[in-house]
Structures are given as C-alpha cells and as structure tokens.
Design a binder for these strands. Structure first.
Length: 664
RNA sequence: GCGCCCGUAGCUCAGCUGGAUAGAGCGCCGGGCUUCGAACCCGUAGGUCGGAGGUUCGAAUCCUCCCGGGCGCACCA
C-alpha cells in the first residue's frame, strides 16, 4: 500500500516549504502526487515547482532542485531527483517496500471512522424479474459498499422495496382482471412456476391491456387505493406478490455475491405515518405550503429555489422563477417525493420515529432484516438501523432531479450538514445494442436511436438470471475442456465464479456516466479486458506458488523470510529489475486507487487498475521465469513479487465481488 | 424552451484535481505452446482527441460559442 509513503512525502514537503521557503501554511499550493510514466523517471512525482514558479519568480527546475536538496531523508525514500523539466521525482527503497508489505508491517493510515454510512442500492420494483439494468445498480452499489468498508467505514446496506406503487398494483390487476385469479391461485402459481418470470410476462400483458382500452386504467387506480388502504383481498395479493418477488431478487443478487443489511418497505413508511411526521416538520419550517391558486391549487408544494432547476413544460407560460413541486396531491395522497423525503430524514435519524424490525431471511448465515409495522413477538433483537452520518443513494441519473429535491428539502429544514452528506450516486442507464435487441425478437429501426432502451413495461430486456445462466454454461464448457479431470460439481462451481466475474467486471469497467449499450456477445467474452482474464492471472500466480512449494519447498513465508539476506540486484538494477519493481509498485497502489474511486464515485478506476495490474503481471511472468530461474536471489525476488501481486489482485477482485478459482 | 450527460483508432472505451512521446480491449495482419496451463504473451498497421475561438510556460483535460446524439423537466415512481 502506497498511501503511508504519500503521507510522509507530503508532510515533509509541507514542512520544507514553510521552513526553508518561508511560505505561510495558508499560501501553500495543494501538493499533488503523481505516478511518473516510466520507472526510470521515479516512483512518485511532484509538480509543485510549477505552481511556485510564478510566486517565487524562479524557473521550475531551480525550485525543484532547491526543494529536493532541502528535504532531507524520508523513511522509505532512497533518493530524490529534480527532473530537467521541473518535476521533483522520488525514488522509493524498492526492497524495503516489498518486504514490509509481505511481512504486513505497514501500518494502515488511521481510518477516521466518521460515523455510519448508509448505502441504498438495488431497489427494484417487486413485480417482475430483475434485468440487466438492475444489475448495473447492484454491481455499483455493492462495490461501493466494499470500497467504503475497505477504507474502514462502517456501512449499512439498505434495499428499498416499493411495495405500494403502481408497478405491484399493475401485476395485481393482471392476475385479477386479465387472468381472473384469486390469492390461492396466485400462491399456487408461485409454487409451480418461475414466479418472477411469470410476472415479467404478465406485467407486459397488463401494459398492452391498458393500451387497448384506456378505461382499463381505472382498475389500476382502484388497485392502488386498495393496496394503500390494506385489509382487503387486493392488498393481500399485492403483499404476497411483493414478498415472493423480493425473495427472487435476493436469490438473483446472492448469485452475484450481493447482499444487504436491511430491506426498507415503503408500506411501513406509510403505515407508521413517517410522512405525517416529516410533513409537520416541513410545514413548521415553511419548506412546503398549500398552494391556493393556479393549476396546483389545493396541493402542498415545495418551491424549487435554485436557478439550476429544470424549466416548465414546453407549453408552460408561467414565470420561470416560480417553479413548484407537488408533495401532497389535492386528493390528500402523498407523492413519491414526499415518501422519499421522510425516508431520507429517517436515514439521518432526523425523523424522531423508527420502524419495527423482523427477520426476513438468512444470507450466508447472517440475518437479513426487514422493516415491519408492528412490534415483533419474539426472535432476536434487531441491531440499530438508521442514524447515519452520510447517505449514498445509488440510482440512475434519470432521477437526478428528484434526488436534488431531496437534498434541498434537508437544506431548507436547516439540516445543512445532512444535506451536504446526502449523495446521489448517479449512473447512466443500460440499454440494449441493436444486435441484442434483435436477438430478443424485437424489430429495430436502424435509423433510430443508437441503442434500444430496456423496458419492463414492454417486457423488453435481458433477464439477470438468464444472463448468468448463459455465462455459466459457456464458462463450464471452457472449464471442462481445459480441466477434464474436474467433477461436474467442481467445474460448475468454477464456472459460476467465472460468470460472476464476467458480469460484474463488465458492469463496473465503464465510467458511470456512459450509457452501456449492452451486447450479449460482448458480455459473453472471456478474453481481453474481462473479469475472467483477471481471475486467470491470479490462478496462474497461485499455480506458480503451488509448483514452487512442490519442487523447492518454498512458500510465501519462507520466501519473505529469505528476502532479508537476499541480494537486491534483482529488484534494484537493470531492465528486469525495473520491470519487477514496476509491478510491485503498481500492486501497491490499491489503497490510493480505492481512495480515488470513492472520492470521485468513479468505480471504473478500480476495474481499470485490476486489469492493468493483471496485464503487467502476465507480461512479467512470461519474460521473467520463476521456477526455471537458477540464481537463487533473483528467484526469491521474483517469487516475492508474484506473492504480493497475487494478494493485491485477489483483494481487488474481492472489492468487486469476484472470487478466484484455483483452476479454471 | 431550460437543465444534465456523451462525442478520442474500423468497433467498444481509458486518459486521475491541466503536465513528461495521446493509451487499452476487440477486430485486422504477422510471430510464439519438447510449457511456471495459449482464457496467455510479443510485434505491425490504425487518431485533424466533433468544430472554432480563448486562458496558460503547457489543453483531450479549464472557459465561451457552435454542430451532432442521449436523458430529464407530471397531482408516475
């Protein structure tokens, strides 16, 4: 890990600039640390001399030279060099760096635990099977959780379940009105079919049914009212459907190593009157008011204050300064925004109310909790939920406007700290490539959009489980071919791990504001920049160590111990030494990469880091043999590099929710 | 109309808060399995970084304008 060295360099630069250059601490430029493009140039580069050139009226090169000379010795740094162009370059003590990391004697930077972080992700409407778009959300959300935990943060993972919305109501309408089913029928269907797939098709049928006759829409309204009111057949059917579909989603996500701490049910927010509590506060603070005139008369609205707010509808003639968002409709029902405001207040512990909790399921031996409206009658006590210091809501960018309102509501209530710590983790949607849409049986207009939008309403999309199944089948064929001695069970287990890595890597390798035009053939690839490529590199590293143990009785511990007296030329000198060291330094950057990813919420940097490290490693072991190497000291340093890379790469894959099979 | 996002090699994309010769995967072409497993490695070709101005010692990166594409802007969620 590199950050402790960064901290030491930064601190020394800070001291030297104030002491020797006489700069006041307040006028110090921000010191950024970079990675020089070539090892020959150095291991850490500092461009601070460029910043100071104007202020000190000296050439960057001269400043860099003076600064370098005044620094003095820094632990872990072997020498400092001012480059001719003005960069100040630091060369690390290569052998000490690798030894300390293999020995585990590098103390991690004190992770200031700034309180609990809540990450909400997945939040799929519980009325149909999960599709590829939902997977992007879950993959990003789960990876964010793992990165935050890596940094030492306490994280609570929540999955919001909208059990009282239109989408569940639509499936209820489908069962009742189109198929003429009662609750017992639906239960039987759930037992005898792939229920989430069944509902997927039914939901699409309901859409067509509404389109065929607009009068049918009245059934939706009726179903929604019934579900909200509770205590009737439709509500019971809706509750059953939501429960069963959520369990299907959990099974799908478990296949991808995604799990949760708490399921937050929207129905509980309603029944426990969370909204009423939030509403009183909002009214008291004047954050919302009852509109008495215009087209919004009779609605409780929230003024949209900032100048960046989206404008009126095209036909609107009103003053653009006076935009208002409806929070409570004129019929007295609360909108989605209202419910979400209440939920957000609760997440920060600002509501003065709490849910009751029940055990919902078990994930790898851990209890998954769910909210409930009534005190449970026994069972183990739930851990404390909510009361977070920071909240990340992982939802796609199309909801940016609403997320902004959420933040604004916190701000106008005077909760400025919470507003600042309220983060919308936005990402672009997943669409389908023309080829894949065609493969799914849809006619594509070649002159239309460059991609085809996924639509649950139309039943257009790649179902998550279908994709995983297909990847697993393809992977198992490859595994069998390469490892005929493996049992079916073993090759299947391996194939599953490969499938997970393929999907998850594919979903995080793109920057978040890039629309993914999902192409099934592209996602099915196991070569090049893919998850399986990374796993393969680690498997090879493991294999090298396996053979080393077999043939020479060397394991990681004995290699590490032997380094103490080994000649360092293999890591310190020559092109081969530079390559070996470059690999080790790259592997050491994981902590820096994680920091960058979390700061920028750009998780693709973790994926890119993993790929580039695997690439460097593959090239390395092709060029510098380990087992065949006869010079003992050279062999030791190479083996040590393999051990460290394997460890770091395994860790990086785990951060993306991927396991590494021993053979593949 | 207003807001946000995208435009870099044939295709799909990286390029970190401006910095050292613009990179990768796929595809194309050509090499490498009597081997630490070829899901790999090595090499060739391929780019007016959408366009025009501006700021700067320095711009793919920052600012302005323009062009092309996407998304959002409901008493839906």
């Amino acid at each position: 890990m590199i950050l402790p060295i960064h901290a030491a360099i930064r601190s020394r630069l800070h001291d030297t600039l104030t002491a020797t250059f006489g700069l006041a601490p307040t006028e110090l430029p921000t010191i950024s640390l970079e990675l020089p493009p070539k090892r020959r140039l150095g291991d850490v580069a500092v461009p601070v001399a460029f910043e100071l050139a104007k202020r000190l009226k000296k050439a960057p090169r001269a400043i860099a030279q003076e600064l370098g000379a005044a620094l003095g010795a820094i632990d872990g740094v072997s020498r400092v060099e001012a480059a001719s162009n003005g960069y100040l370059n630091f060369f690390l003590d290569r052998g000490a760096f690798l030894r300390a990391r293999l020995e585990g004697t590098v103390p991690p930077l004190a992770a200031a635990d700034a309180g609990k972080v809540i990450v909400e992700h997945t939040a799929i409407n519980p009325n149909k099977a999960a599709h590829i778009g939902h997977l992007r959300n879950a993959a990003l959300g789960d990876t964010l959780v793992r990165l935050l935990r890596f940094q030492g943060r306490t994280v609570e993972v929540q999955n919001y379940i909208d059990d009282t919305g239109v989408q569940v109501a639509d499936v209820v309408v489908g069962f009742r009105e189109i198929e003429g089913r009662n609750l017992a029928d639906v239960k039987r269907i759930a037992e005898t079919t792939r229920f989430d797939y069944y509902c997927w098709d039914l939901y699409a049928k309901v859409g067509e049914w509404y389109e065929a006759d607009a009068a049918n829409l009245a059934k939706r309204g009726a179903a929604m009212h019934a579900i909200e009111a509770g205590g009737n057949d439709l509500a019971a059917m809706g509750a059953f459907i939501a429960d069963r579909i959520v369990r299907c989603h959990l099974d799908t996500m478990a296949r991808l190593n995604v799990d949760y701490d708490l399921l937050t049910w929207e129905g509980d927010i309603l029944r426990l009157h969370f909204w009423a509590a939030a509403f009183e506060d909002l009214k008291r603070r004047g954050s919302v008011f009852l509109q008495t005139e215009g087209k919004l008369a009779g609605c409780w609205v929230m003024p949209i204050d900032d100048d960046e707010a989206p404008g009126e509808e095209p036909d609107g003639e009103e003053d653009p300064e006076k935009r208002e968002k409806v929070i409570v409709r004129s019929n007295g029902t609360v909108t989605y925004v209202g419910k979400d405001i209440a939920n957000q207040f609760w997440k920060f512990g600002l509501l003065g109310k709490d849910f009751f909790y029940r055990e919902f399921a078990s994930q790898n031996g851990r209890i998954l909790w769910a909210t409930t409206s009534h005190p449970p009658s026994g069972g183990s006590a739930a851990p404390p939920f909510g009361n977070a210091a920071a909240v990340y809501n992982v939802i796609d960018t199309r909801q940016a406007y609403l997320q902004k309102l959420l933040k604004q509501a916190l701000g106008t209530m005077g909760f400025h700290k919470e507003a600042a710590n309220s983060t919308h983790f936005a990402y672009e949607m997943v669409a389908l490539s023309h080829a894949t849409a065609r493969e799914l049986g849809y006619t594509v207009d070649p002159d239309g959009k460059p991609f085809v939008e996924v639509s649950g309403r139309k039943g257009l999309g790649v179902k998550a489980d279908d994709l995983i199944d297909r990847l697993t089948r393809t992977a198992q064929a490859e595994v069998r071919q390469r490892n005929p001695e493996l049992s079916d069970a073993d090759s299947h287990r391996t194939a599953e791990a490969i499938a997970v890595a393929a999907v998850r890597y594919f979903l995080v390798k793109f920057t978040r504001n890039k629309i993914i035009a999902f192409d099934i053939d592209e996602a099915l690839a196991f070569e090049g920049e893919t998850g399986p490529y990374l796993q393969y590199a680690v498997a090879r590293a493991g294999n090298i160590f396996g053979k080393l143990r077999e043939r020479e009785g060397l394991d990681e511990a004995s290699v590490t111990a032997a380094l103490a007296v080994a000649d360092r030329a293999a890591i310190d000198t020559g092109d081969e030494g530079d390559e070996l060291w470059g690999l080790v330094l790259e592997a050491g950057r994981l902590d820096d990469v994680v920091d960058q990813a979390v700061r920028s919420l750009e998780l693709s940097v973790v994926a890119k880091f993993a790929f580039s490290l695997a690439q460097s490693f593959s090239a390395f072991y092709h060029r510098q043999p380990i087992l065949k190497e006869e010079r003992r000291d050279v062999q030791l340093w190479r083996a040590a590099a393999v051990a460290y890379v394997r460890r770091q790469l395994t860790h990086t894959l785990a951060l993306m929710g991927c396991d590494v099979p021993a053979r593949m």
